[in-house]
Design a protein around this nucleic acid. Structure first.
Length: 207
DNA sequence: AAGAGTTTCAACCGCCGTTCA
DNA sequence: GTGAACGGCGGTTGAAACTCT
């Protein structure tokens, strides 16, 4: 599998430099005397100068998304940033200590989720088997293709279901066991919806 | 007012995967 | 097929800004 070049994503040209492009670059450097390596220029552009960069504080929604995605993806800052338009990986990882690194913050976020409401109310976890089977049926109908191409293993399910707080990894869908998995960026929204639905179903089952 | 301590965040580093000659 | 260059990433650093005493 070959990752699509960034140039394709951004509508930029790729491939060998032309004579004309070389001349433009040379004259620019001679005129402006920019003594920066390409890597440094790229970083500056990507993290600061890009016109679509969104500056300023994170909204509450963005903070919650970051916390959720961090639980789901770990320290894959670029993958998290890809789900937050206008935000950079640098911006997200820099204040991470204040976002989700403390138990208190995680608990605070958790208590705002549907499953957290159960925990807050002191209710015992609902049936893991029922909840998990609900999740598995969701994945079977909605994520059939992506499961086939990505593969999903136990650790993903443990991480994902742990977010709900009321289900365990006791009985993962058998078709997902034993295969390797690395969530694709494009699947994150899907998995967040799965987790959200799992929380909602736990409440339904408990009532 | 000023020095110490803390926080913020842009920039850098090094590694790894991809591309291309 | 191979090696150098490049791009992208996560982790880290350090200077500036801010807060506290």
């Amino acid at each position: 599998m070959v990752r699509a070049p960034c140039c394709d994503k951004m509508g930029m040209k790729k491939g060998p430099w032309t004579e004309e492009e070389d001349q433009i670059l040379v004259s620019y450097i001679q005129t402006h005397g920019l003594m920066r390596c390409g890597k440094s220029c790229r970083l500056r552009w990507m993290n600061y100068l890009r016109p679509d960069i969104k500056r300023g504080n994170f909204s509450e929604e963005e903070e919650e998304a970051i916390i959720s995605l961090h639980q789901l993806l770990g320290n894959r800052w670029s993958a998290i940033a890809a789900r937050l338009p206008g935000r950079t990986d640098n911006e997200i990882k820099n204040p991470k200590e204040k976002k989700a690194s403390t138990e208190a913050d995680l608990e605070s976020f958790f208590l705002r989720t549907s499953a957290g409401a159960e925990r807050r109310a002191g209710n015992p976890p609902t049936s893991p088997r029922q909840s998990c089977s609900e999740v598995s049926s969701l994945t079977a109908t909605t994520a059939g293709e992506s499961a086939g191409t990505n593969g999903i293993n136990e650790s993903f399910w443990e991480d994902a279901l742990a977010m709900d707080g009321s289900v365990t990894s006791m009985d993962f869908p058998s078709e997902f066991q034993g295969s390797s998995f690395s969530p694709e960026e494009d699947d994150v929204d899907f998995w967040l919806n799965v987790l959200r639905d799992a929380g909602d179903m736990s409440e339904m089952l408990a009532s």
